[in-house]
């Protein structure tokens, strides 16, 4: 895997799009290298605070055996790393699931990922971007070996064994929280319902209700059901084959049906014949 541009051998290799190509190999004995592509993180509207634009490095094509800690270790040579975020696809961060216990998160795909590395200093970005192409980053070193293959799977298996009491704790904690939320919700609804009661003088206080404040949300299904009921009712009242014109229509429909079928069959036959499907042997 020779670098594509040999003349810039000891320099950083920069390609269009502003990415710098770094090479990465698994261990010192490896013969082949992956290209990873780094660039300062720059989006027009970054909503969250934990990807500061000046200190975040955006990395493409990180091999599956590089975990967050490995990346942190690799990039700490350019300066102290504050945080590492690995994702399947580039995009804005979301941490809705983060508060769930680890037992309830869904398994991640173990493929190539993109990363957002937040350094503590802005200068580290430049250091990373000017890293020469022909000096590969090494993932697994003797001091800090990275487990792959059998070792990794056995480790994973060990990790997958759940300790019952811990799981129970996690469940209890969540459910307590959930019940509390539900209770509050119920209380609020009750209060609202009370507010809408007439007071002694017969006045009803009309407030601007919050979202979802309705006692029972309108559902699509309910709407459809009502509609269906209506049509069924209409149908039941209808008389079939009562008038002569109705009878004639039914017959007409029947013939049309037969005709349609005939055409369909004809098409089918033509197709089968084209495929020589009538040779019995």
């Amino acid at each position: 895997m020779a670098p594509s541009n040999a003349k810039h051998a000891s320099q950083a290799c920069i390609i269009s799009g502003g990415f710098t190509v770094l090479s990465l190999q698994f261990s010192t004995e490896s013969t082949a290298q992956h290209n990873i592509f780094v660039k300062e993180h720059r989006v027009r509207a970054e909503k969250t605070t934990h990807r500061p634009l000046d200190r975040t490095l955006f990395v493409l094509n990180i091999p599956p055996y590089c975990s967050e800690s490995v990346i942190r270790e690799l990039f700490s040579q350019f300066g102290p790393v504050q945080s590492v975020e690995l994702r399947e696809k580039p995009g804005s961060s979301e941490n809705a699931t983060s508060k769930l216990a680890k037992y309830f998160t869904t398994a991640q795909k173990q493929g190539f990922v993109v990363g957002y590395i937040v350094f503590q200093k802005a200068t580290s970005i430049a250091a990373a971007k000017s890293h020469p192409h022909n000096v590969p980053l090494v993932v697994s070193t003797e001091q800090q070996p990275v487990w792959t293959g059998l070792k990794k799977w056995i480790h994973q298996y060990k990790q997958s064994i759940v300790q019952t009491d811990k799981l129970q704790e996690a469940v209890d904690a969540f459910m307590q929280d959930y019940d509390q939320r539900k209770n509050e919700e119920a209380k609020r609804q009750k209060k609202q319902a009370e507010e809408q009661q007439e007071d002694e003088e017969g006045w009803v206080k009309v407030t601007r209700g919050k979202g979802g404040a309705k006692a029972r949300p309108h559902s699509e299904v309910a709407n459809q059901k009502a509609l269906q009921k209506e049509t069924r009712k209409r149908k039941r009242k209808e008389l079939i084959n009562f008038y002569t014109w109705q009878h004639r229509n039914t017959q007409k429909e029947h013939i049309a049906e037969l005709r349609k079928k005939f055409e369909e069959d004809k098409q089918r036959i033509a197709l089968l014949r084209a495929q020589r499907k009538f040779r019995p042997y």
């Binding site: 895997m1 594509s4 390609i15 493409l60 094509n61």
Partner: peptide
Amino acid sequence: TSQMVARRVEVTGEEAHTVPNVEA
């Protein structure tokens, strides 16, 4: 950016093309 899995870059003139990095 979205299709860079296990690929390497080949620069020809101004254009940068990517192909799978088979050896790696």
